[in-house]
Simulated assay, not measured.
Amino acid sequence: MKFTNILFENNNGITTITINRPSKLNALNKATIHELHLAFNKAQEDKDAKVILLTGSGEKAFVAGADISEFADFSREEGERLAAEGQTQLFDYVANFSKPVIAAINGFALGGGLELAMAAHFRIASDNAKMGLPEVSLGVIPGYGGTQRLPQLVGKGRAFEMIMTAGMIDARQALEYNLVNHVTTPEDLLSLAEQIAGKIMKNSMVAISAAIKAVNANYEDGVNGFEIEIEEFGRSFGTEDFKEGTSAFLNKRKADFPGK
């Protein structure tokens, strides 16, 4: 599969998806959102892909926002359709992806870029990163999940301040806010992401997928997360990974999970 706006690479269980529109600071347009969906779908089907790293090309931006020129003249109905389709096709798809997704934020993550990073399961950032949701400065609000995920991550008050001021925070503030898990130098960003991915891949990917489902259930309206946890916990007992993991523990050896 050939992509125009992204780069796709597999290496030792890690799939790196890079938004590659450096001349546009990797801004998201419809074509890029569609390609990202296809890339994640490809990673889902690839049995060798264990962890997904999501980043941007160049040194300036992860994703500097949505491509405003595409929707500046949209009607109300077109705006609603843009948000609905984008959330379904990419942002919710990433948030509920069954394999771990780590966003490596290299530079600006603004608007749709921060929303994409927040859809990942967790985030790390380079110390030159800047993050924000500037939509109200354009007379609109975040439409790709930003008003929902930001309060979940940083709390209601800080989310309101970030959204209402349309301002940016730096990587250290993002770490203080719990918006990102780690901050490192731009040179070490991907190596740190790969190091974390390596730790993840030592464990049962079947169990991790179940954990993703259980954690996400807590944030779904009308869903009892505790019940989902119980179901997924019980289902784990029927997997080959559980048999291998417990056998390895009891026999004091490293587990070799079959991924089933």
Rank of each mutant, 00 (worst) to 15 (best):
L153F: 11
A207V: 11
D170L: 08
K2H: 15
N12S: 15
A255N: 03
I212Y: 05
G238F: 10
G132E: 01
A217G: 04
F3R: 00
T15I: 12
I19L: 15
S236K: 05
I105N: 00
I17Q: 01
E231G: 00
G155T: 13
K202V: 13
K156Q: 08
D92G: 04
V206S: 02
G167K: 12
I105K: 02
M131P: 08
E220F: 12
G113N: 03
V94G: 06
A84G: 11
S247R: 04
E85Q: 05
A214L: 10
A117W: 02
Y177V: 10
I169D: 01
P22D: 03
G56N: 03
H121N: 09
A109Y: 07
D221S: 12
G139F: 09
G139H: 08
S69N: 13
R21A: 09
A66D: 04
S69Y: 11
L36A: 03
I141Y: 15
A174M: 08
N5F: 15
K60F: 15
A39E: 00
S247G: 10
L36R: 04
E187A: 13
E9G: 11
P142Y: 06
P186Y: 05
Y177G: 08
V154L: 06
S126H: 05
E45S: 13
N96V: 13
A61F: 12
L190F: 15
T185K: 10
G56F: 07
G113V: 09
Q44D: 15
P100L: 07
G143L: 04
G58M: 10
A117N: 07
A255C: 08
A248G: 02
Q87I: 13
F122K: 08
I196D: 02
V223H: 08
F62Y: 14
F108C: 14
V136N: 09
L7G: 09
A211T: 06
L116H: 05
D221N: 06
N128I: 14
L179C: 03
K130A: 12
G225S: 11
F91W: 15
K99H: 11
